[in-house]
Design a protein around this nucleic acid. Sequence first.
RNA 1: GGCCGGGUGGCAGAAUGGCUAUGCAGAGGACUGCAAAUCCUUGUAUGUCGGUUCGAUUCCGGUCCCGGCCUCCA
Length: 471
Amino acid sequence: MLKIHDTFTGKKVLFKPIDKNHVCLYVCGPTVYDRAHIGNARPVVVFDVLSRLLRLRYPKVTYARNITDIDDKIIKKANERGISIEELTKETTKFYHEDMASLKALPPDIEPRATENVSNMIEMIKTLLEKGYAYEEQGHVLFQVSTYKGYGQLSGRTLDEMIAGARVEVAPYKKEAADFILWKPSTEDQPGWKSPWGRGRPGWHLECSAMTKAFLGHSFDIHGGGCDLVFPHHENERAQSICSTPEGSFAKYWMHNGHLTIDNHKMSKSLGNFSTVSGLLEKYSGEVIRIALLSTHYRQPLDWTESLLIQARRSLDTFYGALRCLGNQNLEDQKDLVPQVIWDALDDDLNTPLVFSHFHTLASEVHKATGNVNRMEKASALKASGRVLGLLSEDPECWFQNPHNTGAETVKQVEKLIKDRKQARLEGDFFRADSIRDTLHAMKIELEDSPTGTTWRRLCSKVLYNTKNNE
RNA sequence: GGCCGGGUGGCAGAAUGGCUAUGCAGAGGACUGCAAAUCCUUGUAUGUCGGUUCGAUUCCGGUCCCGGCCUCCA
């Protein structure tokens, strides 16, 4: 039985879907103005694991993740680059899809775009005006926060607290400081849509409200996103949705992933510690990045460091090392092989670090297994468990030999040198054998002799196998 | 200033009212021509001060740090 931490109640609760035959999950997606950074990737990977788990448990799952393609940052960036907004959002969306696919994140079932749902948003604003939750002022339409008693329930703050803590000058068109924009006017050079309140564009919070209603209905199971979205974004979404659609309850559960820091500092372009996914992929495989993101519980803060990635790579080496005995066989529909302890860890609010500790146990059991049947059984359990988390899907030999596109020429050369070394060893010329091994090591190739022959692996980074000297 | 998280061994990171994961790194050993991989053994921890308790790292309170949010942000 899956238990999840629900932000609304602040507790770990048993997940009970609204409809056990169809689970709906909505996660806040990217604003497409720039390449995705590693912080953007965390919710994607976390909720990818959740969606995979849900799909194994329920007959139908609809996972929706929006693309925000209306936003002032987009306008600004497009102007800076001298390209059209459409060009920018199209390009950024394409890169986003590529980057997330590299991290083995499956695409969501639905990916609604804000620009394609403006009419839904306008309808929602109309309803909010009719019901007296919103007002129009100087071409803007604002949600009047004081009209909704439930405001603040999600983020756990009261209106008084917010007023006390307000540090921002109140815009002249606002009745009250906490009111937020549903619609704002656009100038000629800004993108805009016709509306009863003139040409303009929607406020940021509105799109998720309008799109969840359009695609998932007025009530759905889980709403996810980064913890920084709790306030104001999700608080505002919730207010809009519940006020405009009182027959629904909007999200039944709220899940938020913790933030990511880089070397203990908040990621920011001005500090120069901004890591894009594509940049990381130049040095590490997507699977290393994925397991690094999952190596800390999703609600905890995660400090992104080189050492984290090295450890992630090491863990994967261990796991793939244990899978070598399986060869390249596929394991379709083998979820029965997953040990109960791993299901239990996942069911406990996605305790992925605990899952990986069980992975290590399995890997160790593979090596210690006395009989081949036992060995294969443990290895299959590891492989099947990895599959649940979207990991360990590579062919193990490929993992070791070709994690970073070893060229065919290199492979040939390596095999030739291994043959030469074998000959030298047979002749008892260990000096020559060792010198060949040194040559290979300089090519970042490591050899492993075993009773059945010599295998090789490609070293991932220099630091990786030299931690003794560096730490 | 307000609100919310968190402080676990050298590092990463789970868990728990008593039996204190796991990984990396360190030490010793086995295997190996030597390595690598693997296996065995092994040291080290719960910020701080009180309270509750037979017993707290775990519950409660104070305190000190750290981070996040309150403005765009995953």
